[in-house]
Design a protein around this nucleic acid. Structure first.
Lengths: 335, 335
DNA sequence: CCTGGTTTGTACAACGTTGTAAGCAGCGAT
DNA sequence: ATCGCTGCTTACAACGTTGTACAAACCAGG
């Protein structure tokens, strides 16, 4: 049995609007009236119809988080933080899994239940700035690298610097034949390009020549791709003494392939990743990695969105950089 | 600029309702009228206001999936399947992270944006049947073991049989001192109780005496808990030759602890898990585990919900059992 | 006891959509 | 021509809520 304001009003002997005022915490309601209304609400177990409220107010209290895949640990961890941060603003988060394809992403960006969400936090893989330009004014915050200097707010980590630091760490361990896993030539590979740039910069810093044969592409960044890429590297005979994988799942796959090849980590080959997912703290060996501050990323994204929604809808787009640090563990230990 | 049916109607020179009819695929609209309306829709980039539609229809097209934690791989993988299955019914999935606490779960079950979702797929940890009985008629499907024979539809795997099979497999490897990790005495530990029952049944089948000291509790089922429990087992001097962990993350933690203790898996200690998460296919060693058919679980849950929503709202609650199989890998290999 | 201001409560319309009932063509059969 | 039918379109009301405008009740000060 579902009740409406009208039912509560009749029971409490007041008008519908007075009940609405009580529900919304309007100040000028006499204490005894308020008490009577609240009693009626409790008795009927009344709860407001949000569709109606949304229709009336033009706001839904829901924001969406669109990510390529939920079972990629990085996105799952990020999702958790976004949900927490959004709760602090009284928002519910609708999580949308795009799959990463351009068509689905376009749909996600433009279509997610129109008028059903107030704003969108979007981690695109395939989307271009042009795609986004076509979206008439859905408040949006982008995560990651794909669309640089686009028309929307943006939260990033300094991929180039981070990749450069972790590669420099491998250099500091005395490694010279440092491979990279995860390069991508597709337009989607913006993160890959930036991390590759950091890698090459670190090599240049150390006066190590860039060797094309040590850079292995990976179509996606899953464990299986990392394992395949590592096997490929080993099969070509260019034996690396370290590998920088462009994310942690690639690195976990690489660990597996090295294990199968009978190579010891880090003795024979040091391994480093990127993302600092939970798995890397328990893998064998534990994983050295770049640890972006996911909690901060989530909080900044939610705050940017909040700002755009509540105070300044037409502010020029901002780009915020979230901090990162190196988490050095067994696979490439502290010098 | 956001447009309404009215704007489209004016542009196309028809009534509002005719536009609505076109949008909803109503049959009796003359071809040229339809074309004119569709042109106007395209020109204005009209998209319907779902809040209004929901208000009018009493349906939102959104179902919620409530899970304890998104960054537990099992739930993330499950979420992916639920999203896919729901898409097949034209539903959007709102993913709600309860945290697993009783209070939050009660709120999730009763409160998630009232009138904002048509139904709920709920994987509770702490909720009792009594809690659920109080929910006036939100269509709901439960996953997992916590609330048996409650008032709602239910999708389960046969935990007892599955635990018994995987334990029997360890017995079949010739192991006799088989430990269990993950027992819980709290009321939340329904899955733990069932898996423990399967474990003891398998021991009884093999004529092995149950040894209390081989059963290690774990407050939660994370990697860290598994590692801690394993360390505890090793420290007590009851050296097991196999371990059945009640889920995969516990098992990954146990692998880690065994590695740190210098024990070989599976030679010294065989390890088995439960859930078949992606990590277990790439860990070192790879993980033998019970593989519940997550895709099927998700599909059954969505179908139960669909049935309740569209055809038979007052049908008696049903309980469906999803199949499982053993995935035998390096940590406890095939005979 | 009136005046003027504040507090408290009400009636009505509106948000954008769809279901209902009814209107109006066009057409074949009387 | 007129009748009824079918096919297409329309006006109106309603979903449950809140903003606006206003009325009623109250209070203090003259």
């Amino acid at each position: 049995m579902r009740h409406r304001l009208k039912d509560v009003a009749e029971r409490a002997g007041v008008s519908v609007k007075t009940v609405s005022n009580v529900v919304n915490g309007y100040q000028h309601v006499r204490a005894d009236t308020r008490a009577r209304v609240e009693a009626a609400i409790a008795e009927l177990n009344y709860r407001p119809n949000l569709s109606a409220r949304n229709l009336r107010k033009g706001r839904t209290g829901v924001i969406a988080l669109a990510v390529p895949e939920l079972d990629i640990p990085y996105f799952a961890e990020l999702a958790r933080h976004v949900v927490s941060a959004a709760a602090g603003h009284g928002w519910t988060v609708l999580i949308d899994q795009t799959g990463g394809g351009p068509e689905q992403e376009r749909k996600a960006a433009s279509g997610i239940g129109d008028h059903m969400i107030d704003g969108l936090i979007f981690s695109p893989l395939a989307l271009t700035a042009d795609d986004l330009a076509g979206l008439d004014g859905m408040p949006m915050v982008l995560l990651g690298e794909r669309v640089d200097h686009g028309p929307a707010d943006h939260v990033v980590v300094d991929n180039v610097a981070a990749a450069r630091e972790i590669t420099a760490h491998l250099v500091g361990l005395g490694r010279r034949r440092i491979a990279a896993i995860g390069s991508q030539r597709t337009p989607e590979g913006a993160s890959a390009r930036l991390r590759l740039a950091g890698y090459t910069a670190a090599l240049a810093d150390a006066g190590i020549a860039y060797d094309d044969r040590l850079v292995a592409p990976a179509p996606a960044w899953h464990r299986a791709d990392g394992a395949a890429a590592m096997r490929h590297l080993l099969s070509t005979g260019v034996r690396p003494d370290a590998v920088f994988c462009f994310n942690d799942t690639l690195a976990l796959g690489a660990l597996r392939a090295l294990h199968e090849a009978g190579l010891r980590v880090p003795d024979d080959v040091a391994v480093a990743g990127f993302d600092d997912i939970e798995d890397g703290r328990f893998s064998i060996p534990t994983l050295s990695t770049v640890a972006p501050d996911k909690e901060r990323i989530a909080r900044l994204a939610v705050e940017l969105l909040a700002n755009r929604l509540t105070s300044d809808p037409d502010a020029p787009p901002r780009e915020l950089v979230a901090p990162h640090r190196l988490a050095l563990r067994e696979s490439a230990p502290q010098g």
